[in-house]
């Protein structure tokens, strides 16, 4: 484990944030009750996903500029990890919604559009597997990646806000969490949790990238 300080940081941040999320004082809010603690788990999944997918797109653009296959490998693995966190985000969201909105999938604008966004990224992974030639696969999927990211941002952050029926905080005229209860005490757990989960994602990416590099070295 070379250069392992950030892996230690990841573990420490995650242990701190899990303990903090479960044990620290939380604001007592109607309907939410103790589920406000999900803020440190559900919402952080999406933050980690966005950071991983941004990185994936950056490497896709880098690949298009350099044609280095290593950039494509990094782009694909960051997308993989991003999709993993996205699926965790949507499943935890459904569990949370079941007990605060009344049903796991109410067809809420936020739920539907994030499901569409995830399907676009799943199509990216299918597209990669369907192409044989390495350079062609890399180029086509890099271009698709840029478009997928261009669709992701409006799907997650713009379209749900334009509806007036969404129950999700920050959408449909509802105040976002930061408007009334993301106070400084919640932030003390929330931000370290985002960093911790993102680092865990990067760690998993690095493992898979290293396996791919070994595979490629063996094939040469």
């Amino acid at each position: 484990m070379k250069k392992k300080w950030w892996k230690v940081l990841c573990i420490v941040l995650l242990i701190y944030s899990i303990l903090g999320a479960l044990l620290f004082d939380a604001p007592r809010l109607a309907i939410l009750n103790e589920t406000i603690r999900n803020l440190h788990f559900h919402v952080t999944m999406w933050f980690a996903m966005i950071i991983l997918l941004v990185t994936s797109t950056i490497y896709a653009i880098k690949y298009l500029r350099s044609n280095r296959i290593d950039h494509d490998t990094l782009s694909a693995e960051f997308a993989n990890a991003g999709v993993l966190f996205g699926i965790l985000g949507i499943v935890t969201g459904a569990i949370w919604a079941n007990f605060t909105w009344g049903e796991p999938w109410s067809g809420d604008a936020k739920q539907n559009s994030s499901a569409i966004a995830l399907l676009i990224y799943l199509a990216y992974l299918v597209l990669r597997n369907s192409l044989e030639d390495q350079q062609q696969k890399a180029r086509v999927s890099a271009i698709y990646n840029v478009f997928a990211f261009a669709a992701l941002i409006p799907l997650l952050f713009i379209l749900p806000r334009m509806t007036d029926s969404s129950l999700h905080p920050g959408n449909g005229g509802n105040p976002g969490f930061n408007a009334y209860d993301l106070d400084s005490r919640l932030r003390m757990v929330f931000y370290p949790a985002i960093l911790g989960w993102t680092l865990l994602g990067v760690w998993l990416v690095s493992l898979r990238v290293r396996i791919k590099r070994i595979k490629m070295a063996l094939e040469d």
Binding site: M1, K2, K7, W203, L204, L207, I214
Partner: peptide, 13 residues
């Protein structure tokens, strides 16, 4: 488990 996978990959590398 993740750490042990990490170590295995390091050995392979």
């Amino acid at each position: 488990y993740t750490i042990s996978v990490d170590r295995k990959i390091s050995r392979l590398e």
